[in-house]
Computed example of a mutant assay.
Amino acid sequence: MAAKSPDFAPTNRKQALRGRIVVLHAFQMLCPGCVSQGIPQASRIQAVFAERELVVIGLHTVFEHHAVMNADALQAFVQEYGLSFPIGIDQPSTQGNVPLTMQAYGLRGTPSLVMLDREGRIRLNHFGPIDDLPLGALLGQLVAEAPAHADEEGIPDPRPPGHGDGQANAGCDSGICARALQLDS
């Protein structure tokens, strides 16, 4: 059974995430694996999946060089790399080098990728690079899963019409669906 995720977003942001898959990408600006693999992968995920289904959130986390790894440096980095997903800055711990959100999720370093399902359960907590193919398979599985229960607060179901009601292939002709994903190479 998947564990419930720790809180990492303000209440108003948590409401906006309800019913969607969340991909949390923890990175550092000075991490070669983050810059060459993790950040481009997070951008590709955001480009492929509809925002009503999935949201990518970056988590800039700092273990060293705190004085220069500030919000201004991050803003320049985000602009330089053309990042368009929201990015939060992990807060330093008063005890040790591991920032607070990384501690809460049990992350071991960067790059790290955490995936939460529509119910907010941790379905993946991965340290280091991860190949696109198994990651895509897991994301596809999570998108296809129906929520475990209806939302008692009336928040609309983010899934496309027909999903889970026997009409999942509506709009498909000869195996080609109107809602096909377009991948840029």
Rank of each mutant, 00 (worst) to 15 (best):
Q15N: 14
Q91W: 01
M29F: 00
P147N: 06
G154E: 05
A178C: 01
G140F: 00
V55F: 04
C34A: 04
S93R: 00
N70P: 06
R159W: 04
P10Y: 02
Q91H: 04
A42I: 02
H60L: 09
K14W: 12
M115Y: 02
P156R: 02
D173I: 15
V23I: 02
A26D: 01
M102G: 11
E153G: 09
D173N: 11
D184L: 12
L113P: 01
D117P: 06
P111V: 05
F127P: 01
I89P: 06
C31Q: 00
C177Q: 03
G154S: 08
E53C: 01
Q37G: 13
L83V: 04
T11D: 13
L133R: 14
L59Q: 04
V68F: 04
V48M: 02
D7Q: 09
R13I: 15
A2H: 13
C31T: 06
D165N: 13
D90A: 09
A146S: 14
P160F: 07
Q91L: 10
G171F: 03
E64Q: 14
F63L: 06
V78S: 03
Q141N: 12
K4I: 15
D72Q: 11
P86L: 01
D151Y: 09
A16P: 13
A180F: 08
D7I: 14
Q41W: 11
P134W: 13
L181K: 04
A26C: 00
V78D: 04
S43H: 05
D7M: 11
Y105I: 02
D173E: 14
R179S: 06
H66S: 04
G128H: 08
Q167K: 07
Q91T: 13
R118G: 10
N12C: 12
G140C: 04
E152K: 12
L116Y: 11
M69N: 07
V98H: 03
T101V: 08
C177P: 03
L54H: 07
L107V: 11
S174L: 07
P86H: 06
P40Q: 08
D7F: 12
M1Y: 09
Q28E: 10
Q95G: 13
P134D: 10
H149V: 15
L135Y: 02
C31R: 05
L17A: 09
D151I: 06
